Simulated assay, not measured.
Amino acid sequence: MRTRVKVCCIASAEEAAMAVAAGADALGLVAAMPSGPGPIPDGSIAAIAAGVPPPVATFLLTSETTASAISAHIRATGPTAVQIVSHIDPAEAARLAVLEPRIRRVQVIHVEGNEAVDLIPAYAPHVHAFLLDSGRPNATIRELGGTGRVHDWAVSAAFVRASPLPVFLAGGLTPDNAADAIRRVRPYGLDLCSGIRTGGGLDPLKLRAFMRAVRSGDSEME
C-alpha cells in the first residue's frame, strides 16, 4: 500500500502549490494553538483551502474541544477534513459526527506511553482516522503538535496493529527517518511540518527528499 503524505503548517497559496506539485496527498492548515509552529488566521485557511485542487485533501487543525465550536470552525474555513488536536470528550466526537457527517474527522492521539492504545475504542466509532503525534496535552502550556520530537514508535506500531481505522504518523519526521518510520510503524500516512522547512519556510529540496524517502520505504515493503 502506498504511504500517503500530509504536509502540515502550510502558510500560503504558494506553499500549498509547492506541496501539491511534489505529490502531497493532503495539506495541513493550522489554526490558533496554545503553542507550536505554523498557525495562520482563519481567513487565510479558508482562502488556501478554496484553491487546493481535488483529490488533495485540506485538513483544518483545530484546538477547539466541543462539537459546536469545531463545527463552527469547519464552516468558517471550508476544509475537506478536520484534525482534532486535543483529546476531546468522546461524547463531543459523537456529536460532531452528527453535526458534520460530510467532513472527514481525524482524531489526534498524543503518544506519551502505552496508554495511547487504550484510547482507540473511545474514538473509533466517531472518526475516520487517527493521527499519532508527540504533544503533551496536559503540560502547563499545552503542546498539541508541531513539537519536532519523535515519540516511541513501538507504541505507534502497536496502535496501528490495533486500530480498525487508518493511522497517520507525525512527530519529528524528516527525509532521514521517513523510510525507517514506514518499516517500523506501517502507518497509512506520514505527516510532517518542521522536518521539511528551512528558516520557517517550506524547503523544496527537503520536500523532494522526503517524498523520495517515502517511495523508497514503500518499495522496501513490497
Rank of each mutant, 00 (worst) to 15 (best):
F59M: 04
D218P: 07
P164T: 11
S134E: 04
G148H: 11
A181G: 13
D118G: 05
L144K: 03
V106I: 15
R197C: 10
P101W: 10
A46T: 10
D180S: 13
D25K: 04
L99G: 02
A213T: 08
S35R: 02
L173W: 09
D118V: 05
A21Y: 10
D42S: 06
A139C: 09
L202A: 01
I103N: 02
A72L: 14
I40M: 07
P79S: 13
T80W: 07
L96F: 02
A154T: 12
S12E: 10
S156M: 07
E222G: 08
D152V: 06
Q107M: 13
E100W: 01
D118R: 10
G23C: 10
M221W: 09
T65E: 13
L132N: 08
T3N: 07
D118I: 04
R197Y: 12
I88K: 01
A19F: 13
I103D: 05
E115Q: 11
A50M: 04
G171N: 11
I70C: 03
I84G: 08
R149Y: 13
R102G: 15
P166K: 05
R183A: 15
E222C: 01
L190G: 01
H128W: 10
V108R: 04
G43A: 14
E220Q: 13
D42F: 03
G148D: 11
L60R: 13
A179T: 12
P187A: 06
V185W: 00
M221A: 14
R136N: 12
I40K: 04
S194V: 03
R212I: 02
L190W: 06
G43F: 03
A13F: 03
K6S: 02
Y123S: 00
L144C: 06
R197H: 11
G171Q: 10
L173S: 01
P204G: 01
V150M: 15
P187W: 02
G78W: 00
L29M: 12
F59W: 15
P121E: 03
L60C: 06
D203E: 04
F159A: 05
C8Y: 06
P121Y: 07
H110C: 07
C8Q: 08
I70G: 00
A81E: 12
A139F: 07
A122C: 05
G38P: 02
V5T: 04
V150N: 12
I70H: 00
H128D: 15
S134K: 09
D218N: 14
E143S: 15
